[in-house]
Amino acid sequence: MDKFKSLFYQDSLLEKLHQFQNTYGYIPEAEIENLSEKYQLSRANVYGVISFYSMFYTEPTGKYIIRICDIISCHLNESDSVLKAVKSYLDLKSHQTTEDKKFTLEVVECLGHCGEGPVMMVNNKIFTKINKNKALEILNDCM
């Protein structure tokens, strides 16, 4: 492969990482090793990419990744009270996973539904105009 082509090839790295993340719930060591060979990058380099992006994990995540926005537009609409309720209900802080590997909680920055806040995302699904009770109901539906 000439150098130019091999550079082009790198535009698929992020997508590969997404696929592993979706399949395993995190990106396992063995796949990092494979990627480093395939893309001719050092493992440290691949780790560096993974650690830069908040949607990639190197440790197993819960079956449900709960993302709750607490930035200004949602915050003005009391997302902090939703967050408080969810944190105490799951007994988690942000970036933590429950012991039964069911839930991972992430306090995130803007999910792009600012006119309908507070906003919560469960895996790929968006829930808008939530409040404390609605958030707990959504979590219960996942149980």
Partner: peptide
């Protein structure tokens, strides 16, 4: 071609976004 980002505000900056498409830290 569609490339999906992976959670990084700074990739909205055009040069960071370019690095991200290239499979690098943004």
């Amino acid at each position: 071609k569609l490339v999906r980002g992976a959670g990084a505000y700074v990739c909205g900056d055009e040069t960071s976004l370019i690095n991200s498409i290239e499979g690098k830290r943004g």
